[in-house]
């Protein structure tokens, strides 16, 4: 047993829901986006555009809700612990992560054999997650630059003028989508390659036993197999 325990405190139910909304929005936005980029089959453009716009707004709203909730809802700032603190702290620098960036990179590159200690999110993971809201803002902004009714509004029109026209904005919007695609691939891979326990927690809110970590002493202090349920 090398994993830390996965407790519900790490991912409170509201965040499981926002994660589901993010997943659905982003997947449908990518699919409809590809269709709008080039209509690979017939009879779907009106629906594709409707979904793309609607879910685009939903993604931004969901992102805002997720950030606001993180200021109020408490979650466990480290895995393998039921102790909770304000959720936003999981996305800010934590003592548990200090000096561990190199360790994570070395671990991923197989240079380091042992799993680095850290908070709920490892250093590269935390950087990636913290970048997502900015990426969502940027993709939504360029999206509104392309949407005809908003493309003439001040900041959107100014952006189109700055980059050299709607065609260039389209390419920027398209490239950001690919950043999302690569993020999802990386995210899904890293979240499942060492076992499905994290995915079961995130999608089904299912707990999983494992090592116990202390946020006070910043180290592993024991093991918890959840009443002898499956390891």
């Amino acid at each position: 047993m090398a994993h830390l325990a996965h407790y519900r405190q790490a991912h409170p139910l509201p965040f499981v829901i926002t994660h589901w909304i993010n997943l659905i929005c982003i997947l449908v936005l990518i699919f409809t986006g590809f269709y709008i980029h080039f209509p690979y089959f017939s009879g779907f453009m009106g629906v594709a555009r409707g979904l793309h716009l609607g879910l685009g707004y939903l993604l931004v709203i969901n992102c805002a809700v997720r950030i606001i909730l993180s200021l109020f809802i408490k979650s466990a700032p480290t895995a393998g612990s039921r102790e909770v603190d304000r959720d936003i702290k999981s996305f800010l620098p934590q003592k548990d992560n200090r000096h561990q960036f190199g360790a994570w990179i070395k671990y991923y590159l197989f240079i380091k054999k042992e799993h680095p200690l850290g908070a709920k999110y490892g250093v590269p993971q935390k950087l990636a997650y913290a970048a997502i809201p900015f990426l969502i803002l940027l993709v939504a902004f360029t999206g509104l630059c392309l949407y005809a009714p908003t493309s003439v509004v001040g900041p959107f029109a100014a952006f189109n003028g700055l980059v050299g026209g709607v065609m260039v904005t389209r390419i920027i919007h398209y490239c950001i989508m690919w950043v999302f695609i690569i993020f999802i691939a990386l995210h899904a891979y890293l979240a499942t390659i060492e076992g499905l326990a994290p995915a079961k927690m995130m999608f089904g809110w299912k707990e999983h036993g494992g090592l116990v970590y202390s946020p006070e002493t910043h180290t592993i202090i024991g093991e918890d197999d959840l009443d002898g349920k499956d390891h």
Partner: peptide, 14 residues
Amino acid sequence: RTKGGADFESERKW
């Protein structure tokens, strides 16, 4: 590492 990941380091290198 696919079955639960590598063993955790006992302490940070730092």
